[in-house]
C-alpha cells in the first residue's frame, strides 16, 4: 500500500479515536450519574469484603463507557501504527505525531488502570484530559498530517523512538496520576459509597508516578545518549532539557515526601495536581522555548 494511503488510514483511525474519546467522556459522566443514583443499592458488606470487592459495581453505562475506551485505544493504536508504517519511524517528527502517540498511550494506560483496579469513576477526570489533548491535535494545521520528513539531526531511528516513547509514557502516566489525585481531593471532601476509597486513589496516583518517574528518567538518559551521539555534548542546558529535568525533580520531591516523610492523602494529592502543571509546561515548551528542541515544534 502506498505511504499516502497509509497516512490517510492513520488519519481516519485518529478521527475514529477522537469520536470514541468524546463518546467515552459522555458515557463516563452518565455512568457516574447512574452510580450516584443507585449507590444506595450497593452494599459494602463488612470491611474485609470491601477489601475483596473494591471494584466499582458493574452497570450498563459503565460497560458502554469501558467498551468505548477500548475502541478508542484500538483506533488510536492503529493511527500510530499505520503512520509508523508509512513513515518508517517512530512518532517523533513533530507535535502532531507526538500528541497522537500521547493520546494512544494515555488511553492504553487508562484502559489498563481500569482493568487492574476495576474502578471507573477516574474516567470522569482522565477522559476529559485525553479529550483536551485530542482537541489540541485537531487545532494543529492540517498540513501536519502529511509526512514532512526529518531534518538530519532527528535521523537516529532507534534512540529517537525510544526517547520519545519514554516521553509519551511518562506524560501519560503523570496525566493519570493527576486524574487520580483530582478524584482523591473530591472523595476526601465528598465521600460516597460508589466512589473508590481515598486510600485506593492515593495508591493509583502513586503507582502511576512509579511508572512515570522512571520513564521520565529514561527520557532524560536517552536524550543525553542521543545528544552525545549527534551533537557531542550529552547535556546542553537546553530549555526543554532543563524543563524535563525540572519535572523529574518535582516528582522526585513527591516520592521522597511520600515514602520518607509519610505524606499521604490531601497533601500529596494536591502536590500531584500542581506537579502536573510542570508536565504541561514541558509538553508545550516547544512553543515558548528556543534552543535545540525548537525544530520539533509544530
Amino acid at each position: 500500500m502506498p505511504a499516502t494511503d497509509l497516512l490517510r488510514l492513520s488519519y481516519y483511525g485518529f478521527t475514529a479515536a477522537s469520536v470514541a474519546v468524546l463518546a467515552a467522556v459522555v458515557f463516563y459522566v452518565m455512568d457516574a450519574l447512574w452510580l450516584a443514583r443507585t449507590s444506595r443499592l450497593v452494599t459494602a458488606g463488612d470491611a474485609l469484603a470491601s477489601w475483596r470487592a473494591y471494584a466499582t459495581p458493574p452497570t450498563p453505562s459503565g460497560r458502554l463507557a469501558s467498551t468505548t475506551v477500548a475502541l478508542a485505544t484500538l483506533f488510536a493504536g492503529l493511527a500510530v501504527a499505520l503512520r509508523a508504517l508509512a513513515t518508517g519511524r517512530g512518532p517523533y517528527s513533530d507535535m502532531y505525531e507526538f500528541s497522537v502517540a500521547f493520546v494512544f498511550v494515555a488511553l492504553l494506560g487508562y484502559f489498563l488502570l481500569e482493568r487492574n483496579y476495576g474502578i471507573r469513576p477516574i474516567g470522569v477526570i482522565a477522559l476529559p484530559v485525553i479529550l483536551g489533548m485530542v482537541a489540541y491535535v485537531w487545532s494543529l494545521p492540517p498540513s501536519v498530517r502529511e509526512d514532512r520528513g526529518l531534518i538530519p539531526a532527528l535521523s537516529n531511528n532507534v534512540i529517537m523512538t525510544a526517547h520519545v516513547s519514554s516521553a509519551v509514557i511518562a506524560y501519560a502516566a503523570f496525566a493519570l496520576s493527576f486524574a487520580a489525585a483530582v478524584l482523591y481531593l473530591v472523595v476526601a471532601r465528598w465521600p460516597r459509597a460508589w466512589l473508590p476509597s481515598a486510600e485506593l486513589l492515593d495508591e493509583v496516583a502513586f503507582r502511576a508516578v512509579t511508572i512515570g518517574f522512571p520513564a521520565q528518567l529514561l527520557l532524560l538518559i536517552l536524550g543525553s545518549v542521543w545528544a552525545h551521539m549527534a551533537w557531542g555534548g550529552y547535556w546542553s542546558w537546553d530549555p526543554k532539557e532543563t524543563a524535563a529535568l525540572f519535572t523529574w525533580m518535582v516528582y522526585g520531591g513527591y516520592l521522597h515526601a511520600r515514602t520518607l516523610r509519610g505524606w499521604r492523602g490531601t497533601r500529596s494529592a494536591a502536590y500531584l495536581v500542581v506537579a502536573f502543571l510542570a508536565v504541561v509546561f514541558t509538553y508545550f515548551g516547544n512553543y515558548w522555548f528556543g534552543g535545540l528542541h525548537a525544530y520539533s515544534g509544530v
Binding site: 470491611a47 470491601s50 477489601w51 473494591y54 465521600p191 466512589l195 476509597s197 481515598a198
Partner: peptide, 9 residues
C-alpha cells in the same frame, strides 16, 4: 476482621 473498618475515606 479485628479492629475498625478499613474502607472508604
Amino acid at each position: 476482621l479485628l479492629g475498625r473498618s478499613s474502607h472508604a475515606g
